[in-house]
Amino acid sequence: MERADDPGPGGAGGAGGASGAASRRGGADGADPSGGVALRPPRHAVDPRAIRWWTTQALLTVLPAALAVAVAAALLDGARPWLLALLAVVAVGGGAYAVVMPRWRYRVHRWETTEEAVYAAAGWVWQEWRVAPLSRVQTVDTVRGPLQQLFGLASVTVTTASAKGEITIDGLDHVLATEVVDRLTATTQAIPGDAT
C-alpha cells in the first residue's frame, strides 16, 4: 500500500528510485573524499492543507503579541511612539513569518516509509532529516491537536529506544496517518528483538 500512494518519479521504493532522484541531488561544495552516494529527500510531500495549518499556528502566536502591543500603545501615552514602532516591527516580522514559514516548511517537510525504515525531513530554516530502521522502532502513534482536527490532519510519531531518535511526521491527512500507523505497527511487530 506504500507503493500505491507513491506519486514520485522514482517508481517503486528502495534503491530503485536512484535514477530518478540522482539528478536532483547535487554534491556539497566541499571535498567529496569517499563514496559516490548521497541522501535523497524522502519521497512524499505532506498534505497541502498543512500550509493552512502552519499559517494558523503562526497567526495564533503573532496576533496576540501584536494585539498586546497595540493595546499598550493605546493606553500608554508616554511610550506611544516607541510602542507604535514596535507594533510595526511585530506586524511586518510576524506577517512575513506567517507567509514564509508555512510555505518554506511545506517544501522541506517530506516523509517516506519502506519495509525497513521510516524516513522524514522536517524544519524550515534549520532542517533535519531523520531515519530509523523499523527493527528499532518501539512505538508508533498519531497525534491530533484541535487545530489539526480542524484541517483534517494528523501527526505520526515514531519512537525508538533512543531518547533522541524520535521521528515526527507532521501534517498528514488523518486517514492516511492512521493507515501509516497501522502499516508501521504491523511491520514492527513482525520483527523480533528488543529494539535496542
Binding site: A18, A22, G26, R40, T114
Partner: peptide
C-alpha cells in the same frame, strides 16, 4: 539503514 534512500552522487554544483 540508509541504503533505500541513497542515490548515486551526480556532478557537484547543483
Amino acid at each position: 539503514v540508509l541504503a533505500p534512500f541513497l542515490v548515486e552522487r551526480a556532478a557537484r554544483g547543483t
